[in-house]
Amino acid sequence: MSDSPPDSSDPHNLLLVEDNPGDARLVEEALSESPPENILHTVSDGDEALDFLYQRDAYADAPRPDIVLLDWNLPGMSGADVLAELSDDPARRVIPIIVLTGSQSETDVVTAYTNCANACITKTGDPDAYITTIRVFEKFWLSVAELPNPNGKW
């Protein structure tokens, strides 16, 4: 594995942790037009997210994601629980985590940032507005921001 920075034209691996199929579909649609074609991996709960990130069980060969899009209100292990666990792991806390939430709660936002979230995005009730928001996220995080080297050590 190389320690050189990835070519900005390389596709990015994104992990979407989303239990709502409709919201997952909107994120997929928003990212479908981006060049280069990014690779979106989707899991539906917190336990699956941790299996993916720790390369356990069915995800033993999962790639290290460049970014995690984490729904805050997940069944079972919540987004807050996932974020707290990842923020305690030095190898994984360098992966940018963007919290997606339908909540307007200031407490949720403070909790997310306290546990090392890199951003919080509010899901709107308007699908077109949500797609636009995800495209703005994508433009910044995948074109402008400098991301950790995905070939680095876990």
Rank of each mutant, 00 (worst) to 15 (best):
M1A: 13
S2H: 12
D3R: 06
S4V: 15
S8E: 09
S9R: 14
D10V: 02
D10M: 07
P11T: 07
H12N: 11
L15T: 03
L16C: 08
L16G: 06
E18Y: 10
E18N: 06
D19C: 11
A24H: 04
A24Q: 05
R25C: 09
R25I: 14
V27P: 00
E29T: 08
E29D: 07
L31S: 01
S34F: 11
N38C: 01
H41P: 02
V43C: 06
S44H: 09
D45K: 07
G46T: 03
E48N: 04
L50N: 02
L50S: 04
F52T: 01
Y54C: 07
Y54E: 08
D57A: 09
A58S: 10
A58T: 07
Y59H: 13
A62Q: 09
A62R: 06
A62T: 12
R64S: 09
R64T: 15
P65T: 02
I67S: 00
V68R: 02
V68T: 10
L70D: 01
W72V: 09
P75Q: 05
A80R: 04
A84F: 02
E85N: 14
S87N: 04
S87K: 04
D88H: 13
D88F: 07
D89Q: 15
D89R: 15
R93K: 06
V94H: 05
I95P: 12
I98C: 15
L100S: 02
T101M: 13
S103I: 07
S105I: 10
S105N: 12
E106Q: 14
E106C: 01
E106Y: 06
E106P: 04
T107Y: 11
V109I: 15
T111A: 13
Y113A: 03
T114D: 12
A117C: 12
N118W: 11
N118S: 15
C120K: 03
C120M: 09
C120H: 08
T124G: 12
G125E: 15
G125Q: 13
G125K: 13
D126N: 11
D126L: 04
D126F: 03
D128M: 10
D128W: 08
Y130V: 03
Y130S: 03
T132H: 15
T132L: 13
T133C: 10
I134E: 02
V136W: 11
V136F: 11
K139G: 07
W141Q: 00
L142H: 01
E146W: 00
E146L: 08
E146I: 09
E146F: 07
N149R: 07
N151A: 00
G152W: 00
K153H: 08
